[in-house]
Design a protein around this nucleic acid. Sequence first.
RNA 1: GCGACUGUGGCGGAAUUGGCAGACGCGCUGGAUUUAGGUUCCAGUGGGAAACCGUGGGGGUUCGAGUCCCUUCAGUCGCACCA
Length: 806
Amino acid sequence: MDFKQIEKKWQKRWEDTKLYSFDKSKVDKKMYVLEMFSYPSGAKLHAGHWFNYGPSDTYARFKRMKGYEVFQPMGFDAFGLPAENYAIKTGIHPEDSTLKNIATMEKQLKAIGATFDWDYEVKTCMPDYYKWTQWLFLQLYKKGLAYRKEAPVNWCPSCNTVLANEQVKEGECERCGSVVVRKNLTQWFFKITDYAEELLTDLDKLDWPEKTKLMQKNWIGKSVGAEIDFETTTGEKFTVFTTRADTLFGVSYVVLAPEHPLVEKLTLPDRMEAVENYKIESSKATEIDRLSSAREKTGVEIGAYAINPINGRKVPILIADYVLASYGTGAVMGVPSHDDRDFVFATKYGLPIERVIKGKDGQNDALPFTDYGVMVNSEEFDGMTTEEGKIAVVKKLEKENKGRLKTNYRLRDWLVSRQRYWGAPIPIVHCEHCGAVAVPESDLPVKLPYDVDFTPNGQSPLLKSEEFMHTTCPKCGGPALRDADTLDTFVCSSWYFLRYPDNKNSEKAFDTEWINKMLPVDKYIGGAEHACMHLLYARFMTKALRDMGYLNFDEPFTSLIHQGTILGPDGNKMSKSKGNVVSPDDKIQKYGSDVFRVYLMFCFSYIEGGPWNDSGLESVQRFFDRIERMAKKAYEVHFYDGSFTADEKELNYVRNYTIKAVNNDIDNFSFNTAIARLMEFVNALYAYDSKVEKKNKLFLDCIVDLIKLFAPMAPHFTEELNEMLGGKYSIFNLSYPVCDEKALVRDEIEYAVQINSKMRGRVVISSSASNEEIEKIALNEVKDSLGDATVKKIIIIPKRLINIIA
RNA sequence: GCGACUGUGGCGGAAUUGGCAGACGCGCUGGAUUUAGGUUCCAGUGGGAAACCGUGGGGGUUCGAGUCCCUUCAGUCGCACCA
């Protein structure tokens, strides 16, 4: 079969007949299948793109044949650093290179033969899209969910921009791997922490990989505890956060983070120099040493003392950089007897270690004892368990207004400003008199100027554009400056799935009524690397928009699947530097897109991925040939219509078994086993063909079913065979084969017979046989191996095995 | 350090609830077709002469464990002093 000609033929026909365009009138049967859109980085699709889009297109086609109105759009996450870095290197403007890349990728995506409905395409770098990204920013701003503050931020010295917490991996820039440094800057944040609790609890509602949910859960990092107020001997107040209020009697010191605002005020003059030195040391250390996990704990006393509110004891105050300014209150109580870190610290600095918790009966409670236990040396609380004491201690303090129950989250607000050019400008104007002023919605979009010098100098490139920067204040009309930063590209991608179904709307970001019908996304497919970034941001944005009345659902992606990674033949991640990149183009040239995508589905587990291996392509090609030969046979042979012989019953069994299994497998993204089942079916057809001279019409029916079953995986090939056999156009308008359960009921069943759990034989037993009959047949079968042993018990597992215990 | 996942023939990988381990494919062996090679078709293919032994190692529960429990090793990923 000439695949090149066939691909062209059917792609044209599909396009001419608008086969894949979404029928809005059937929205009640909608199935929103979405693959994470791509970044238009290189000119060509790589193996990873194919692995993402090919199999998920199979899923979409399958659902279509199951009667769903499938909505499967495609677009481009077009803003971002790579285009800008490429521009810095080559001088080609990001807009030019991006648009060119998009054009090439569109063409290639069409060549996959996927069912994307291109009428709904979005490109995030176009003004008709980022206008609404800016609108979104303004809504959050109005709602108090976007705010500006000066804070220590993560700065990537190589990308010349700040990064969100989520974009820092092991102290390094997620994108370029440079060591991230800390800087104090005034930046825009989204208040994702307002949604911490809901983002956490709603995870239970989602059909997502457990691992991903767990990662989000850990990232949000809820911890339930209490805030306890300490007073210093000079009357200053500060608050600590603890999850173990039951250990309060064991406090032998308190620690403030070096950056804590009270440090300067509390430090005694004779300690000032030591404290200042320590602060300098620790600020250096956080930049360089963040990676060493078992870093030695250090600290200095500041000379001041605090009063333990529960027992009035005076304890020294220290600063130490193992206490983080950014978590909790930036201050902790030191209980060395019941906390590993405090124990190490107290031992080093000779601070007292006093037990206030003992283990439950017989438990080894050597210090430091960090398990839950029973309170001791704690006055009236003695004898209480940790669970009781945690509450009781706080309740007592609460009466004196010295403490309260409190829940903390590890999640921080989302930093969205970027000091880069190629992104959506932040729609804010800074006026000398009025401060930060929102750009009126009617003035959107704030257009990104084309002619800008974007050579990096650590500042926002837009600052250099006089024309862009200078504007008038929307409030007072006086001269004002625009915000020179652009939005993190994750802002663009946090709502694109809402734009797809209404991508041409020029009045609104989307029509609420329509979007409430089209969403949530039923099946979302993409890489696992977005677990704590895109997937978290999109959930936040959905919830925020819901609370503003623009949406009526809580979660954007009901069901999520991560595809695995295709590695190089050497088992390493494909990369140019390793020289192990396999180009799909040569393979597609040689085998065609159908064979290529079936290869990807057959030779890899979709969830796992794995190393590339060429030999699989040949075997998949062979499988196609085998089907084609069978189909030609079906076209030529004369069939009779009549009752089934044993051979035909068997063939019909395999047919229906295959139908059932393939339906199930595709639903579960288990494409490799679905194809294995189809191969078995083909093998059964060959067996029937070589065995039976005069062929029943069943043979033809089977081949027709086979082609339909295979259609979602090999769309061009099966469309051609369907036409050859006189089937109606398009095969994708036919319904997917449904299993006839009756055909799966067999007259006879083969049982394994075991004696004392060891295999001793097999018997074929009528499916209507009673247990007594089964036992009798089994005993007869193995009577020689059984000898004269006494049978104690017989275990029958229906349709599987008989185990004789003797 | 903490957490999650993975570990099955020469190879890629299968195994509803615990129930015949190794589906399907690659590779290999033999046969048929062919002048020959290739293609195609048919048969075989975990180890062992056999009893038996086999799912990273050790232990346990069970009539029965790749699957459940404990322990240990190796690899992958995520978090990284979160009080």
